[in-house]
């Protein structure tokens, strides 16, 4: 077992008195992919955003192992103290349309993280941008274009390139393939897997699509109403779910084989 990269202990977050995340604890090891699955309102996105300190958790501990092998606690850091740490943890958004600034060229979008963190000079930054562009399989002439000139899948590649140009250790993918067409989705999933191998990335993969999660993740966390109802390796959870809610979720996936009819469990009889 590899060393842990992130440890979340007893995390709580509520909005206006409504609890979104309740008493969540988990660990991610370096270079693994942890899936967080759940339906809308399960708190999975809130949890991911608390980990990145995009929003502030109410209670609990988020510990992160930095590049210098030092453990830091993120929950009490101020926004300014978080800035240097952001190099090591990045996010890929769900919506490839709204997550790119429409008024910046691809070159400006990809160079910005390097400028923010004062990395390199003009020439070396340009080289880095070209390098990451090749890694996400986009042409060099994309650089002078604006996001609106690209299709959804290409924009998501730009989003991934922006997240990876700082060479982070942890990447949070918040429904990053959910808005894409199935053929594009397959390309992006393959790309994420290739990049993970190449850079030794650790993914926190938030998704509602169980077949995607099954494909890409090593371990998963099933969330329901802000709580973790089940966690374990993908194999364990998919083949031998222990909790009623997990069983309900799995029974609801429509199979693309017409000979495997949909036969969902009844929510009411499970008391959910």
């Amino acid at each position: 077992m590899t060393e842990p990269l992130l440890e979340v202990t007893n995390l709580y977050k509520s909005f206006d008195g409504v609890s979104a995340v309740e008493d969540v604890s988990f660990t991610i090891s370096a270079s693994e992919t942890l899936g967080i699955v759940g339906e809308s309102g399960s708190g999975k996105t809130t949890l991911a955003r608390c980990v990145l300190r995009a929003i502030d958790p109410d209670r609990g501990v988020v510990r992160f192992r930095t590049g210098d092998d030092e453990w830091v606690e993120l929950q009490d850091k101020t926004d300014d103290e978080m800035i240097p740490l952001r190099q090591q943890m990045q996010m890929v958004f769900q919506d490839p349309f709204s997550s790119l600034n429409p008024r910046m060229t691809v070159q400006e979008i990809l160079e910005e993280p390097l400028i923010i963190h004062n990395i390199g000079n003009r020439g070396s930054r340009r080289a880095e941008v070209l390098d990451i562009l090749a890694k996400v399989q986009l042409d060099q002439d994309s650089l002078t274009r604006y996001p609106h000139a690209f299709s959804g899948g290409q924009r998501q590649r730009i989003g991934i390139a922006r997240a990876l140009i700082l060479r982070p250790k942890l990447v949070v993918c918040d429904e990053s393939v959910s808005a894409l067409d199935v053929s594009v989705q397959a390309q992006i999933i393959n790309l994420l897997e290739d990049l993970q191998e190449e850079f030794g990335l650790t993914y926190l993969f938030v998704a509602h699509d169980l077949s995607v999660v099954h494909h890409i993740c090593d371990r998963i966390l099933v969330m329901h109403r802000g709580r973790v109802v089940e966690q374990g390796s993908v194999q364990e959870v998919f083949e031998d779910p222990q909790e009623d809610y997990t069983r309900l979720l799995l029974s609801a996936i429509p199979s693309p084989d017409p000979d495997e009819p949909l036969n969902p469990l009844d929510r009411k009889s499970l008391g959910l």
């Binding site: 397959a186 999933i189 393959n190």
Partner: peptide, 16 residues
């Protein structure tokens, strides 16, 4: 291109 039980650990086929 649909990720399924059989594709675990393998690359997904793309349309191309």
């Amino acid at each position: 291109a649909i990720p399924g039980l059989a594709t675990k650990g393998a690359r997904l086929a793309t349309i191309a």
